[in-house]
Design a protein around this nucleic acid. Structure first.
Length: 492
RNA sequence: CGGGGUGUAGCGUAGCCCGGUUAUCGCGCCACGUUUGGGACGUGGAGGCCGCAGGUUCGAAUCCUGCCACCCCGACCA
């Protein structure tokens, strides 16, 4: 293994790929487009899950689990949704293998074992869930249904990248059913806000909340809310979506209820999801040429202690000190690991923990034992300081909060510097090429213009920001009358 | 799925054009010793059906065909 990462400036995408593998987050597997999430990477995902799960429950949702397979007839019921996903579905057609008579020791699909009806491996679960909800809902008294599931889904992607786009990925998908349109819209907006809060407070990743244009909307949705983040290379990343589905799925699956006036109506729906893609977003928001930088709120361990010693006695003495710090931090709710491996030297440990983004590192050696101090190093700033042992737990507790905030502020400053208002198409292209980031420009509201801009520049409308200022202007491309600015960017 | 590239030990590679002893080098790995405040050093050692399957040839890492995987650029996408 080479010692240094490719730098971001040299080749951003190579840097990303190397970082994911070297920091031991994930690797590609024997299955095309599918990744193995390794323990360290999975630990971060589990932290994300835990907090999101808490937030979902706090907003009244319950977890449940629906099947991996969707019978084709159900899948095709909501036409737009089916059409949108059809091109990337894995399909189960048989249920049995047998010894291949022509090929000793090999198996083949048993031609006799063809399924009556093909099963689609879920690319998303609206179909199977709404076919189920049909049996659960008769009256407005059965509503709302507020359910989330943690699951894997499969989308047969042509080009995959670890975490950012894999053929199988992990996510959560909320599927709610409501008696009124307003209630469903409020739900969709609420969950988009939950995502934004999570992104900003836990991932320390600033996001812009908005709605998608018609062409970028989820297949089968009436409105798609989203949070959009900006990566360090100036490309945007859709970090989460929340859909107001109207009555589309209720109509497709014939889910009706009697309202409190005795009238029959179709149920209103939302769905919302975030995926392991957030791991990619996290990596690309904060990390540097030395490796991963993790916000304390999501780091598998927030502090690592590295002992420095010349002999067994020193190791013993240093370890004793380390163990007592460990205990003290645990009481404060700080997660800490004592790296007492005797097989690696301190320098190697420093480098590894930097690569893996541990927010704070304590080094304790003989000098420190004499002076009652430790060396404390910050991963985000790569700065070191000497701290009195008696102050250590308070210092760390405060520093973790400070790091969390500063990571956010730094990312926010970067994002804000990379939102550029542009009023003509030449500037549009120039900014996209040289400065990158989000471009705020007037848009005439037509899909044709949007499409044309995409063809010419590869930039898409990432979102129409929430509570957008309405003003008069001319479309940056067509010159037609426009009522608001929208955000364009090249995106992942 | 279209265009381009790559595949040699755990990782990174030389050799391939122009077929010919025992496949090169570095890192990593193992043992022992010395080391340990920023990726240690010495000595010794292990590790390869050269991506897979066919073909050409006396002989294939090297030439030919097919397949697979990965990377880059498009189209698609969270």
């Amino acid at each position: 293994m080479s010692k240094n990462l490719t730098s971001r400036a040299e080749d951003y995408s190579k840097w990303y790929n190397e970082l994911v593998v070297k920091a031991d987050l994930a690797e590609s597997s024997a299955v095309r487009g599918c990744m193995v999430i390794k323990p360290y990477g999975y630990a971060i995902w589990e932290k994300m899950q835990a907090e999101l799960d808490r937030m979902f429950k706090e907003t009244g949702h319950q977890n449940a689990y629906f099947p991996l397979f969707v019978p084709k007839s159900l899948f095709e019921a909501e036409e737009k949704n089916a059409e949108g996903f059809a091109k990337e579905c894995a399909v189960v057609t048989h249920y049995r293998l047998q010894n291949d008579p022509d090929n000793e020791g090999k198996l083949r699909v048993d031609p006799e074992a063809k399924l009556e009806e093909e099963l689609v491996v879920r690319p998303t679960s609206e179909a199977i869930i709404w076919s189920t909800y049909k049996g659960w809902i008769q009256s407005y008294r059965d509503l709302p249904i507020l359910i989330n599931q943690w699951a894997n889904v499969v989308r047969w992607e042509m080009r995959t990248r670890l975490f950012l786009r894999t053929a199988e990925f992990l996510w959560q998908e909320g599927h709610t059913a409501h008696a009124t349109k307003d209630e469903a819209i409020i739900e969709a907006e609420l969950m988009n806000n939950v995502y934004a809060e999570f992104a900003e407070n836990f991932m320390a990743m600033p996001v812009i909340k908005g709605v998608k244009t018609e062409s970028e909307r989820f297949a089968g949705a009436v409105e798609t809310y989203c949070i959009e983040a900006l990566m360090q290379d100036g490309k945007a990343l859709q970090a989460g979506t929340s859909h107001f589905l109207g009555q589309n799925f209720a109509k497709a699956f014939d889910v009706k209820f009697t309202n409190n006036e005795g009238k029959l109506d179709h149920v209103w729906a939302t769905s919302w999801g975030v995926s392991t893609r957030l791991m990619g977003a996290l990596i690309m928001t904060h990390s540097d040429d030395k490796g991963l930088v993790l916000p304390p709120n999501l780091a598998p361990f927030q502090v690592v202690i590295v002992p420095i010693y010349r002999n067994d006695e020193q190791f013993e003495a240093v370890s004793e000190k380390a163990e007592s710090i460990l205990k003290e931090l645990k009481v404060l709710g700080v997660s800490c690991k004592f790296d007492k491996r005797t097989t690696h030297r301190p320098g190697a440990k420093f480098a590894q923990h930097e690569l893996q983004g541990v927010p704070l590192r304590i080094a304790i050696g003989p000098k420190d034992l004499e002076n009652n101090t430790v060396e404390l190093a910050r991963r985000d700033t790569l700065t070191k300081s000497i701290v009195e042992i008696k102050d250590i737990s308070v210092t760390i507790k405060n520093l973790l909060i400070q790091i969390q905030e500063e990571l956010f502020t730094k990312a926010l400053d970067f994002r804000n510097e990379h939102v550029t208002e542009v009023d003509n198409f030449d500037d549009f292209k120039k900014v996209l090429k040289t400065k990158t980031g989000f471009i705020s420009a007037f848009w005439d509201g037509s899909s044709e213009t949007e499409q044309k801009i995409k063809e010419l520049t590869k930039a898409t409308i990432r979102c129409i920001p929430m509570n957008n200022k309405m003003e008069e202007g001319k479309c940056v491309y067509s010159g037609q009358k426009a009522t608001q600015r929208v955000l364009f960017a090249k995106a992942y």
